[in-house]
Design a protein around this nucleic acid. Structure first.
Lengths: 301, 301
DNA sequence: GTTATTAATGCTTTAAAGGTATTAGTCTGC
DNA sequence: GCAGACTAATACCTTTAAAGCATTAATAAC
């Protein structure tokens, strides 16, 4: 049995007239009659009660009509849903991101994506760069917003923004009032940095910048999240570097200063598995691309 | 798109190997490859991620696989259910019957039918002969157990039992103790009969029998149901005729006597529309037939 | 009784599906 | 690094199932 048998059957069952049904199906009446006969023979069930001049459904025919309509409808829906999945209009997208990405580029991209693809189920998780890589490896996330450098070869990486890090000082710190602040002015300060193994490249970058400024930093603490580092700065334990977008999270005891001259900076990128061909991810990447182009245009203007 | 496309797709999706899938489908690999290509072209969706040496499903392919399996399963079920309906194994059967049929032939027939066709939904309604005919005409019932004669030409009628009617007498009636009771002995009694228009043929039969016994009955009441007539007999209002099977419904104030010689009797028959080709009805008729044959054999033995 | 209607049948044509032989990459093992 | 096995795709031909055309047979309506 094939779907065209069902289509033919439904047409005849609805018209109760072989000639008209055949016309509607763009075929001739004898062909249709024979197909219906073949269908009845295959099912070994009489679907129509025929006289030489009229046709009506048997009880079994009525049952089969309901089923046939459902099957045809389901088939149509299966095609539609498959196409939508292929276009990335339906599916799921799991995003991971650093705390600072959540406060900069991410929100607008997510908003655009939601608007354009309302039927995609979106899951969002804050994770540090390392955890994102692990999550990507374990197929627990689809796209990560993380900091470069990342050396994993099985990942595709696309830089999307430069992120300058600011100095966080206690409000009462002597340097807090100074307009222009250079790294060398901080030579005698106690530094609260992130753990070295949580981003050795960035750690080294900070050390190198200090050395270029003529001193080796006095690292009094290595603390995991920027949030916590800011807390310790407020408590007067020292100074710290935090991503520029995190200054919006206000702590009245802390002020943020952009360093003039060279300052620590990180490159935010999106990462996804090379073997990920999810159309949803593709669509999300398009939106990211689009958003970046817009930023570039705006910064030029 | 046709069902065989779905079958081919499911086979390849399950094996992820064109050659083996083709073998399983009893066809050659190139034919299968081409069919899948054609399907993808028709859907305008890539279902498989192919390399020269391996095949795997795309996200859209995974979606389509689920749908395809469901459609194929539904199709199989549709065929099965249609066949069962055609065989009368599934459906509904609405029975109507007189009160006396419910106490004689009907229960065993219904029991047999239930055992053999447990998936048929059975509806049962007590109705007098006239109401049954109306219900049959209005498609509110499928088969009736009613009294002959019935003249409707659009009904098929099959006599199934002769029903002798008994005399119901008040317990304290002088004739109550007599072993042999003939109609002529009742010449002076007050008769409680059924309404004439509710079965004129049977009414006339009773009058005729009385006349043959040498008297014209003194009809003091015409009352609708046998139940009610028995009630009035118990109340001492007169004597009545009731179907033999109704004597089992005991009223201690009433006794039943079979008339020797000629007695009123009715023919119980089943009736159904000539244009009713419901397989369920056909199956029920088979069981009725079967049961009647059994009765005949038993009465001969 | 004649005509129109309508489903079925016989025969021919067409188109879709399938088969065989072969090609073109890709992986494995020595 | 090369030979051989493996596997999906392509080219070309054959088969088969479905469709068309002409006609028949039976029924209903006038």
């Amino acid at each position: 049995m094939e779907l065209h048998d069902l289509r033919y059957f439904v047409a005849v069952a609805e018209d109760l007239h072989f000639g008209r049904a055949a016309e509607r199906l763009h075929m001739t009446q004898p062909a249709l009659s024979r197909q219906i006969q073949a269908l009845e023979a295959e099912l070994d069930v009489q679907l129509f009660q025929r006289t030489k001049r009229s046709v009506k459904l048997t009880i079994a025919g009525q049952t089969f009509l309901e089923e046939a309509k459902q099957i045809l409808c389901h088939t149509e829906q299966a095609i539609q849903i498959t196409r939508r999945v292929a276009r990335g209009e339906v599916g799921q997208l799991r995003l991971s991101f650093t705390a600072s990405a959540l406060r900069s580029v991410l929100p607008e991209m997510v908003r655009m994506f939601r608007d354009r693809y309302p039927d995609v189920q979106l899951t969002m998780n804050e994770r540090c760069t390392n955890d994102q890589i692990i999550a990507l490896q374990n197929h627990q996330t689809d796209v990560g917003f993380l900091y470069l450098p990342v050396s994993e070869k099985w990942l595709t990486l696309k830089p999307i923004a430069e992120e300058v890090w600011l100095v966080a000082l206690p409000r009462k710190h002597p340097l807090a009032n100074q307009k222009q602040l250079t790294l060398s002015a901080l030579a005698k300060e106690a530094f609260i940095l992130h753990p070295r193994q949580e981003g050795p490249a960035f750690y080294n970058q900070i050390i190198r910048l200090c050395e270029q400024a003529g001193f080796y930093p006095n690292v009094v603490q290595e603390v995991e999240t920027s949030q916590t580092r800011v807390g310790l700065v407020a408590a007067g334990m020292g100074i710290a570097f935090v991503p520029e977008h995190l200054q919006t999270v206000g702590d009245t005891e802390v002020i943020y200063r952009r360093l003039s001259g060279s300052a620590p900076q990180l490159e935010l990128a999106i990462a996804y598995r090379r073997d990920n061909f999810s159309p949803v991810v593709q669509q999300f990447l398009h939106i990211v691309e689009e958003r970046i182009q817009k930023s570039v245009r705006e910064s030029v203007a």
